[in-house]
């Protein structure tokens, strides 16, 4: 089974990028609205959202606790490029390094994907592995699809 923790999609939420007055610079990169929507979904899934973090050119991150006991630390990176690109990751380095296929991650991915698929704000969602991002492959309909 291949794990695809990255999703690309369009959204009905407004493009919230804020350019400078002369439009030569970006004062705030897009993704706040999508991050807030994801935070809302995560709360609905019983997760504890700790913080929305602005990362300038890298977009936004939603930091939250989830998993069966609600103690696993995750984050979702949100960036608007051509389409929105989000990635769900475990936030602890030892989990990422030594347990990249931890059941908590697989469960969270499945639940997030199901919730996003039934939310009309997210359109044409496709899931990717890291190496598949912007590679031309069409992406999968589910993050844990074979």
């Amino acid at each position: 089974m291949k794990i695809r923790p990255w999703a690309e999609f369009d959204s009905t939420l407004p493009d919230d990028q804020i350019d400078s007055e002369d439009e030569m610079d970006i004062l705030q990169f897009a993704g706040k609205g999508v991050s807030e929507a994801l935070a809302e979904i995560l709360k609905g899934l019983g997760c504890e959202v700790l913080e929305l973090i602005y990362l300038h050119e890298r977009g936004w991150e939603v930091l939250f606790k989830g998993g069966p006991r609600g103690k696993t630390l995750f984050f979702i990176r949100v960036t608007l490029i051509d389409r929105y690109l989000i990635g769900l990751r475990q936030a602890r380095w030892f989990r990422t390094t030594f347990a990249p296929r931890h059941p908590d991650l697989l469960s969270m991915l499945t639940r997030l994907a199901e919730a996003m698929a039934s939310d009309e704000r997210f359109i044409d969602i496709r899931w990717f592995a890291q190496e598949e991002i912007h590679s031309g492959v069409p992406g999968a309909l589910r993050p844990l699809e074979a």
Partner: peptide
């Protein structure tokens, strides 16, 4: 250096509405 950074947008004045992708 950031494994989770894949690309971004450019300001509207520059006319590229699709942004850039590091991989591309």
């Amino acid at each position: 250096v950031d494994p989770h950074f894949n690309g971004g947008r450019v300001p509207q004045r520059f006319g590229n509405v699709r942004g850039w992708s590091g991989k591309a």
